[in-house]
Design a protein around this nucleic acid. Structure first.
Lengths: 226, 226
DNA sequence: GCAAAAGTGTTCAACATACACCCATGT
DNA sequence: ACATGGGTGTATGTTGAACACTTTTGC
């Protein structure tokens, strides 16, 4: 086998939806290069762990977050990404329910924080490019897979779902048509509970019926929101 | 930086369309492990080349093919993929016009051949999984990007396009609706030339107008074939 | 003249879009 | 009683799906 010394890393773009804003989880680097810069959480893969395990370990170590949804995004491995070494980074796309985790800096990270995706700081390495790709993936995926529910609480208001779509897709959506469409899918459970948010008419709580979704999907149903 | 000895490779799933069949390019391995097994072309990345360059080099070396369309597919890097070493393989999805290349085995490859995707031999390593993922990508992509034209000659019959879609999507398509739809896009040029295939009414030749496609795309047009 | 492939239009159903008023609550 | 957000239906246009006959050529 030829001699080759390329390092293999994983990095994750972790999205969370909080206060009606789309956020991404960043760490402040505690080591060179790019010390004190904000960056995506990630790091080198250990020799005896799978790639997804590496992502989960790094997230746990650096941010104390555990993931609700994880998928591979893209791999970046061209020359000159890292001033020290050739590094191939296999990047992941993750969704969490931010309320469920107390983020906390630890190994290699001086600080951890959620950033509104509209107000990102400058990112280390080529992480801005990775982030852009992840955001694009999120926007696309939201329209053809029910991943929005991984960003909301288990029980949510219909208006939350609607606002989430408008925020992430960055466009206006007609409330009536959206509701008609989603409810028509038959993958939401309408709960008895109502929530009064202070003012206005109390709203119904809904739950995503994942089992029903997979059943319908097996039968040929296709989730699709324009 | 921690010690880590993981090798980085690229592998390519190269599709070609010939004789109304979808084919994939395989090599017969000349070295252990899996010596004499059929496998996807690929190999370790050199330290001073980018990933796409590695793919192109390996394809040139092993099969003498140059590529019309190339995109990254997925990365496989879990434990136990290769009995020798931990190897992370960044896989690519490629399309070629098979008539344009004389395939020829060379470095590390004892033989090269096009295989009908319906009649694949057993593949080395986890290459069957990689192939499955590529085929899925091809089927999906065919419906929302005009990549079918990268599998046909520059000038083609409408019936070729139609058969290509039916072959790859593995389903029947209504000739009239299909033609109406595609021609309605306004991205094909109807040439004056006609071709007589021996029997039946001679057919018109068409050309994909790539420039026009990108123009329309910029204006918000979306290629979409159900 | 017949076999083979090319070319072409219409009808119907399903879905997307646009759009405005009433309801239940808190203050 | 008014401000706030929740909940709902209809009409219209667009798109997808189904479907069969005529044309041009080779033999």
């Amino acid at each position: 086998m030829i001699r080759q010394n390329i390092k293999v890393a994983v990095d994750a773009v972790v999205f969370g939806y909080k206060d009606r804003k789309l956020n991404v989880l960043l760490i402040k680097r505690n080591i060179e290069p790019y010390k004190n810069s904000w960056a995506l959480p990630g790091g080198l893969v250990l020799e005896d762990e799978n790639l997804e395990q590496a992502v989960e370990r790094e997230l746990k170590e650096e941010t104390n977050v555990t993931i609700d949804y994880l998928e591979q995004l893209y791999s970046f491995g061209n020359l000159g990404r890292d001033p020290r070494n050739r590094v191939v980074s296999i990047t992941y796309f993750a969704l969490v329910k931010p309320e469920h985790h107390k983020i906390k800096a630890d190994t290699d990270a001086k600080d951890v924080a959620w950033f509104n995706v509209q107000e990102l700081p400058e990112l280390a390495f080529d992480h801005q490019i990775i982030f852009d790709k992840a955001k694009e993936r999120l926007q696309n995926k939201l329209t053809y897979e029910p991943i929005g529910f991984d960003l909301l609480e288990n029980k949510f208001l219909f208006s939350d779902l609607e606002k989430l779509y408008m925020t992430i897709l960055e466009k206006q959506i007609d409330r009536r048509n959206f509701r008609k469409k989603i409810l028509g899918f038959g993958i939401l459970e309408e709960l008895e509970e109502k929530v009064s948010e202070g003012r206005g008419r109390p709203a119904n709580l809904f739950k995503f019926n994942k089992k029903q979704y997979f059943k319908l999907k097996d039968e040929g149903f296709f989730f699709d929101i324009k």
